[in-house]
Design a protein around this nucleic acid. Structure first.
Lengths: 198, 198, 198, 198
DNA sequence: AATGAATGAGGATTCATTCAT
DNA sequence: TATGAATGAATCCTCATTCAT
């Protein structure tokens, strides 16, 4: 019975997804052709379509995975440290393709309501968490509210939005130019936030 | 052969560019077809190709114009007020398509070195200005350095990068969701920057 | 202004339709590829799609035209003579492709509700006319009712259906085998109907 | 290797053929995919190809079976009654798929010489039988010649062709529209043929 | 005997672009 | 100057078929 094991099946799926992510990061979702993806992942066109019903389906899977990874990196109750670590990870050379893919994802969220929903839910979760941490005052000793931000009575949700914006902008700038000085960026931000530098 | 006046020629060009911008903002550069653009601008395909040698050429023109508009809005020596005004303009309903187009431009800068150059030079100019203003201390009374930022000895270039990141993130979030509370965002940012709220 | 004249446009459309009809008659609607049609009509694939939005659309046009031709051949008030002439035309060598196409049309009417509607309306019209002629008695002197059929009090609609069935079966048998003796068929039918042989 | 019994083997084959017939009746031979057939018959693709070397082979088997069933229904020496019974069977609801499949078979006979041979031999046999019965006069008391047809000296082969055409047309019309009044059709035909209504 | 994962050529259709008018 | 008819390569996807298990 040639029914493949679940592990092999998942591995195959991931193999295709990885190849697709590489293509899409490089050329964007709509300039990269399915042939490109097929070539990159080394399996036949037919097989790719056994795993993903259409290119759109594949894009949706890529986008979902991209946000899942980010969420996983932040953890369930992100602290200031987690946030800064996320910013630092943007500077890692091996993150290059991830950043590029992210920018393509953001652009795709403009034209596809479906993708937008995934992206927004990927962004709204962390924002709500951050906002809660900022608002909770005493409990926030080890969170983003630690420092100047929490003290000034600013709208926690708006502050959370700003923090996310900073992350997004850093991703964008680093995706364009890998020589961006990530350390200086994080250091300056630490100073701005009034948090003690690590 | 009735040679057309330069003014008419420029108007024609702009008419095509506007239609293209609308299409590209909606569907992205590579999902919008030249046929879409042709339909939207109401002239023939042949004529479009007399103004733009290729789709790539047209995209480049759109990208250049997008950054020119942004630069024009900031002025030659941007102050904190100019920056905040720029952020506020993101919330204006009529800016909707501009924001969307901007996100597509950013994505295109990932895959095309040519576009990336235009985008980076569009971003680097303002950043250098901001950094200089932040660094100049005393002279910066009416600049972005006005307030806490300039005082803390943070790397001016990094701070400038952060300010740009905040703008970019706001554009992104607003392009996805027009209900983003722009006023709250700007207010919170003003508080963070230590500048007096307007 | 290269806007083509209406006549040229119609001619082009017919050229494509004729080529398509030939392909479809030979191989059926779903074995003949659009490439086959493109090759046969000598224009580019792109142009074919300027005239027909899809293969289905093209099939629909072919089917409609097939029935239009048949209806035209019968005239507005078909007589026994018209009917027999129609049967005789089935035997003409140049009708070969028409017959084959007809059989494909009938098969397509099985799977496509849209085509079925066209086919049924192409068949129902003549049947109603024939039924009326059969029923009208005195007025039917020069119609199908002329002879035994009208006299025996058979259900005119059912008789009309039989006459149509005979035509359909003759088309089928002749499409398969061009050596079918059309004259003998018509002679025998004339005898059966009790009408005077021509 | 567990060698399967001949009976089980035949049953398997028939199970696949039935599923294929259902698919082909619904969508035609060339719109129904082998995947459709595989899905419908509930065995694996590999197994299907152990029973039928190719799709064409399968089609040929289906066509042969279709005509075998028809021939079986008429019996070795068909009488008028057998013929009328055949016509009546066309109106039975459970014959629906059979009719549809028949029309597809007829269309396939247009493009495939191989299928055409099967179809023609399926039609020629009964025609010859009918023609002989019509010609034999006295011996034909219980045959199709019973009644007006045999009396008028019409070409027996042509008359047989007409009778077959009537059957074919009835199948066609009923396959398109199950509300066709089968009883009225048969009654009218009985009247036409001059045979006593049952 | 039986599975269904895997293939890759071929399907319909769209695309950026050109050119005769 | 301006048109839009015309091109054909490239797109996404499906298909009949095979083969390792």
């Amino acid at each position: 019975m040639p029914k493949i094991s679940d592990a092999k099946l998942a591995a195959r799926r991931q193999q295709i997804l990885d190849a697709a992510a590489a293509c899409f990061a490089r050329d964007g979702f709509h300039r990269a052709s399915m042939q490109d993806v097929v070539r990159e992942c080394g399996v036949s066109a037919g097989l790719v379509y056994r795993y993903f019903a259409s290119k759109d389906e594949m894009i949706a899977a890529i986008v979902a995975q991209w946000h899942d990874q980010r969420r996983a990196r932040l953890g369930p109750e992100p602290s200031t440290e987690d946030y800064l670590a996320l910013l630092r990870s943007v500077g890692e050379p091996r993150a290059r393709d991830e950043l590029r893919l992210g920018v393509q994802v953001w652009a795709e969220a403009i034209r596809s309501a479906r993708i937008r929903d995934v992206v927004l839910s990927g962004v709204d979760g962390p924002r709500a968490l951050a906002a809660r941490a900022l608002a909770d005052g005493p409990l926030a000793a080890r969170t983003l509210a630690n420092g100047a931000l929490g003290d000034r009575g600013a709208d926690p949700d708006a502050v959370a939005r700003i923090l996310i914006a900073i992350y997004q902008g850093l991703v964008l700038q680093t995706a364009w130019d890998e020589t961006v000085d990530n350390e200086a960026f994080v250091r300056a931000l630490t100073a701005m936030l009034g948090a003690p530098a690590d």
